[in-house]
Design a binder for these strands. Structure first.
Lengths: 80, 80
DNA sequence: GGAAATTTGTTCGTATGTATA
DNA sequence: TTATACATACGAACAAATTTC
């Protein structure tokens, strides 16, 4: 996994791509919780707003769903 | 409410005028919160920096006050 | 039951870079 | 050059729902 600091793609899109690959690759399983926003901040070395922008992309694509106080979960069938 | 895209007045001044009218007209009431910056972005179709420039005009005029994490509020007596 | 920690949601504050007129 | 506007990114504070002890 690489993050291209000088590339034209914004951080949040690059992170969204990585998370999407993890879902499609079975690293993050259907109906299971993905790491918290703060955990992803630490892993990718970015701020929470940036992580949230990345997750928003996944929500838009229908890959994950968020629940206040609970976390962010992979949908039942991410490949539909 | 109209936004003159081709006029000589910058967006942020036009938006500041609209918000001022809403305060003076009682749409936004004293001590009450006005819509968030993001909500105003959507309503006026502009970026957050532009909305913030408009709000800065109102702060300068003493019509509203901002509070981090809480929002932007109409002052107790906007007509003083 | 209750308090504390965790987690997502919301909001303003600040800074940088780019584009345009 | 200056002013305007947009996109991106980080920081900080507060709020609310949930979980855990």
């Amino acid at each position: 996994m690489t993050i291209d600091l000088d590339g034209p793609e914004p951080f949040f899109e690059q992170i969204a791509s990585v998370l999407t690959q993890r879902i499609e690759g079975g690293i993050y399983l259907p109906r299971r919780r993905i790491p918290s926003e703060y955990a992803l901040c630490e892993e990718f070395g970015v701020s929470r707003p940036t992580v949230r922008s990345a997750i928003a992309v996944l929500v838009e694509k229908g890959l994950v769903a968020t629940s206040k106080g609970k976390g962010t979960f992979v949908v039942a069938d991410p490949g539909e």
